[in-house]
Design a protein around this nucleic acid. Structure first.
Lengths: 128, 128
DNA sequence: TTAACATATGAACAAATGATCATATATTAA
DNA sequence: TTAATATATGATCATTTGTTCATATGTTAA
């Protein structure tokens, strides 16, 4: 925001280090895109939906039961996950069967779990 | 929140599917911990700090220069990253040299990037 | 057709949160 | 010691965002 206000206040960044980092870093846009992805994963309800769908496909009604939440709230969150191309759905009668739309999500989740537990990886919990 | 309000309104979840999912799913607490990790990564400023530190160690002053932000704002975010054990620092004189504290963070970032660019994953089958 | 079921979505509200500002602590230089 | 430098942090404020409520759309059963 204010890159000028500090230069007059006596701060001395290591210009070499700053230059090296800047040239090797990804674009600001890329960083924002990655952050957006994590922001979506950073909600208990949404990550739990993805976790459940990693085990098997489920409809809104099932997810509401599992999460102990209203159908409306679940549907709102599914909309966000759809927009992020993390889940997709298929209409079956009056139900909407949801499933994961990207295997990366599982990988990301397991790595996050590894960070938390300081372990290598996690056993596969999928059905069969 | 309200697990009772729906049962009297005529919704019929697939009880088998729900049971299967429930027994195989991680605990609620684990989900919340994972979500917390992602929430921290889901902020452009924080993920950019981690990205910069993945290139080389930097002090608060350098990070402020790279991010074009105030030192205060950077320091606040570093505090959050420290609490999550994603970065650690070492005092050198009046400077504080920060570096990554967990190699998992880089792995998670790269997988997220793969999700965004649709590389090495399931083909895109979104609904039209 | 009518009623029940299943999902989707806009609006409103409350809670969470990041940036700014002011201030505090600590280290080095003069 | 005094001043300058470097970082840390509490409080405030504005924005973001998830849930609820009301309502709309569409499907199946009676």
């Amino acid at each position: 925001m204010n890159d000028q206000s500090d230069s007059c206040c006596g701060h001395n960044p290591n210009l070499d280090a700053v230059a090296i980092a800047k040239t090797k870093m990804c674009s600001k846009q890329t960083m924002e895109d990655i952050a957006e992805t994590f922001k979506i994963l950073g909600e208990p309800v949404r990550i739990t939906i993805l976790h459940a769908l990693s085990i098997r496909e489920l409809c809104v009604c099932d997810l509401a039961e599992i999460l102990e939440m209203s159908h409306s709230a679940v549907s709102h969150q599914l909309r966000i996950l759809r927009a992020a191309r993390m889940v997709r759905f298929e209409k079956q009668g009056r139900k909407a069967l949801y499933r994961l739309d990207d295997s990366h999500v599982e990988t990301i989740m397991q790595t996050a779990l590894a960070h938390l537990t300081n372990e290598g990886c996690v056993p596969d919990r999928r059905e069969k």
